[in-house]
Design a protein around this nucleic acid. Structure first.
Lengths: 338, 338
DNA sequence: CGCATCGATGTAATCGATTCCACAAGGAGG
DNA sequence: CCTCCTTGTGGAATCGATTACATCGATGCG
C-alpha cells in the first residue's frame, strides 16, 4: 500500500509538503498542491490512520460498551450513537458485554489499549476497578442509560418515573390491585430504579409491593420466563406482571402461554422499553417507551464536548407510556397511539 | 499514560528488554523479567496498540459491514461474528450501511484506512468500484449472507431453496394458489435468489408468479407496508404474501391490520428470516430460519484462514422452514416446533 | 588453552504520519 | 540598497512500539 513517501516521490516534493496538502495547511503553492493531488489520485493513496493516530495522539474513535446488543433497545441506541458520531467525524467501536462484567472489562481494556478518544458505557454492574480507574485516569467518559453512583462522570438517561406512575394509574383504573414486577439486576441502576419507581407509584394508590411480587431477573428472556412461572405458582398470583425490560416481557409471555393462560384475561402484562413488535404481539403490549435515539445522540454530544474540551452536561429525558391492550381495555386512555 | 520507556526506566533495563518480556521472547533472565513485570504493575502500563500496529503492520481487527443493524437477523450475525473473532484473538469493528451504498462505501473506506486485517461484508448493492478495488488489491475479504457475483471472494451463506420449496408445499397443501412475494432489492443476491427460489418452487406445483404478485421492497418495514397495500388493492388479491425478510413482514402485518383484515383468514403471511418475536405475534408467523450463528462463525473462520495464510473455503448452510399459524392450520405439518 | 557458541542485553533502525525549525526567495518599506 | 517579513519548502525529530544487529561474558569442546 502506498505511503506518504511514495506520494512525495511521485509528486517530486517532500513528505512535509504532501502532509500539508492533505491537512489543508495554508502555505502550499498552487503548483505543489496540484502535483500532490495528482500523485495521490494516481497512486490511490490513502493516509494510514494508524500512523496518524500515533503521531497526533487521537484516533477520532469512540468506544461504546453496551450490556446486550441483542436487546433491540441497545441496538437502536448503538445505531443512533454511530450516526451522531459519524456526523461529528468520529467512528464508533461497539463492545457487547452480554451482561457479563468480565466481558465488559475485556472490552473496556481493549478499547483503552486502542487509545480511543472517549468511552460511552452502559455498565453491567456496580463498577469494576478497571472502569473506576479509567474514569479517574482521565479517559473522557459518559454513562448512557445506566450509570455507576459515586463516579464523577456525566450521565445521559431516561427518567421513567412519570411514565411508571401513568402506568400504575392505568392499571389501577382497570381494577388491578395485585401488581408484580420482574426486576432487573440489582447491580444496575436501571434494575433498581424501575423497582423503586414502581413501588413509589403503587404507594400513591395505597398499594403494596410485597416481596413475593418482586422477581429477580437479569434482563434476559429466560429469567422473565422463570420469574413468571413462580408468580403463577403462588397461592394468590398477581393480576399484572410488569417486566423491567422487553426481553423479560418476551419470557413472561412465553411462560403465560405455556400454561395455556391468556393475556390480559388471566393476567395482564406491561413492559419497560417499547419495541416495534409490541404492536403485533398477541395481544399488543403496553409499554414504556424511551426516547432512545435522542439518548444516543445526546450521549455522543456530551462525550465529544468532553473530548474537545467543552464542559459536558448530564441529560435526563422523560420516557412515556404507550397504552395497548395487554392490560385490558381502558376506554379512558387507549386513544394513545399504539 | 505510561509508555514502554517509562517501564524501562523504572525497571532499570532497556526498552528492548521490556518488549521481550511483554512478547514472551525466550532469552530474558528471570531477574530482568521480574523487574519488568513489577514495573509494569506499578505503573499500570498497557502497551499502546496503535504503536504496535504501526510497527507490526497488523491490527488484529476485523471489519464487518452489514446492511442494517436494526434487522434482528444482522444483529445476531454481528454478535456471533464478534464472539468467534474474540475467541480467535481479534476485535471487530461494525459498520452499518443502512442499505445505502454510499454509507457502505464510507465504512469500507474508513475500515481500510484503519488497516484492519480483514473485511467481512454483506454487500448492499452490486458492488461499488471501491469494494471491487479492495477485493482485488488483496485485503483479505469474505462475503457473508449476500455476495457480489464475479468477484473472487469466499462466500458464507444460507441456501433457502429447500426451505422455500417446503414452504410452497405447505401453502399448496393448505389450498393456497395465488401466492405473492415482497422481494428484496434486485441489487442484492438475497433479493434475487429468494424470488427465484420461490418461482422455481411454484413451478413445481404448476403455479405461476405473475408480475403483479411481485412487489419490489427494500428489506425495510415501510416497503413491506406499501407493497402489501398494492397487493390488497388488486382486483384479485393474492391469498398469501411471502416477505423476503422479517422487517418487510412486519410492514405487511401493519398494512393488513390497517385494513381491518385478519391473518390468516383473509390473507396468509410468511417470512424469510425467523426471529424470536414471531412466536408471539398475532398470529405466530411461519418463517424460514437461517442458521445465523453458524454463518457468522463460519465467516470469521474463513476470513481468519485467509488472513493467516490458509486457504479459505466458501460455506453454504441450509435454512429450514418453521411452520406456525400465519398461513392457516395444517394438521399434517404443524408439529414442527414453533 | 583457544575458539565457537549461546544467552542476555542494549543500540538503533523502522513503521507512516505530523510538525518544529531552518532557510531561500521575493516583496515591502525605510 | 539594505533590512524585515511573508511564503513555500525540505530536513529531521517525534509518537511507541518491534526487531535486526552488535556486544559481552560465560560455557563447552577439542
Amino acid at each position: 500500500m502506498a505511503s506518504i513517501k511514495d506520494v512525495a516521490a511521485e509528486a517530486g516534493v517532500s513528505v512535509a509538503t504532501v502532509s500539508r496538502v492533505l491537512n489543508e495547511h495554508p502555505s502550499v503553492s498552487e503548483d505543489a498542491r496540484a502535483r500532490v493531488l495528482a500523485a495521490v489520485a494516481s497512486l490511490g493513496y490513502r493516509p494510514n490512520a494508524v500512523a496518524r493516530s500515533l503521531r497526533t495522539d487521537q484516533t477520532r474513535t469512540l468506544g461504546l460498551v453496551i450490556s446486550d446488543v441483542l436487546n433491540p433497545y441497545f441496538t437502536e441506541l448503538a445505531r443512533s450513537v454511530e450516526e451522531e458520531a459519524r456526523a461529528l467525524g468520529y467512528s464508533v467501536i461497539i463492545g457487547n458485554a452480554d451482561e457479563r462484567p468480565e466481558l465488559q472489562d475485556h472490552h473496556v481494556r481493549t478499547l483503552l489499549d486502542r487509545r480511543i478518544d472517549g468511552l460511552l458505557v452502559s455498565p453491567t454492574d456496580g463498577g469494576s476497578p478497571l472502569m473506576l480507574d479509567a474514569a479517574r485516569s482521565g479517559t473522557p467518559m459518559v454513562f448512557v442509560d445506566r450509570w455507576i453512583p459515586g463516579v464523577d462522570v456525566p450521565v445521559v438517561r431516561a427518567d421513567g418515573r412519570g411514565a411508571v406512575r401513568d402506568l400504575v394509574a392505568h392499571l389501577h383504573r382497570l381494577g388491578h390491585r395485585r401488581l408484580a414486577i420482574i426486576a432487573g439486576p440489582a447491580a444496575t441502576t436501571t434494575g433498581q430504579e424501575r423497582v423503586a419507581a414502581f413501588r413509589e407509584a403503587l404507594e400513591e394508590y395505597g398499594l403494596d409491593l410485597p416481596d413475593r411480587y418482586i422477581g429477580q431477573g437479569d434482563f434476559q428472556a429466560d429469567s422473565g420466563r422463570r420469574v413468571t412461572e413462580r408468580f403463577l405458582d403462588l397461592a394468590e398470583p398477581p393480576q399484572v406482571v410488569f417486566a423491567a425490560d422487553n426481553l423479560m416481557a418476551l419470557g413472561a409471555l412465553d411462560a403465560v402461554r405455556a400454561r395455556g393462560l391468556r393475556v390480559p384475561d388471566d393476567i395482564a402484562l406491561a413492559a419497560f422499553d417499547d419495541i416495534r413488535w409490541f404492536v403485533h404481539t398477541d395481544p399488543p403490549i403496553t409499554a414504556i417507551a424511551q426516547p432512545t435515539g435522542e439518548l444516543g445522540r445526546a450521549a455522543v454530544r456530551a462525550l465529544v464536548d468532553r473530548i474537545e474540551g467543552r464542559a459536558p452536561r448530564s441529560v435526563t429525558l422523560p420516557a412515556r407510556l404507550v397504552v395497548r391492550r395487554s392490560c385490558g381495555e381502558d376506554p379512558a386512555t387507549n386513544r394513545s397511539r399504539s
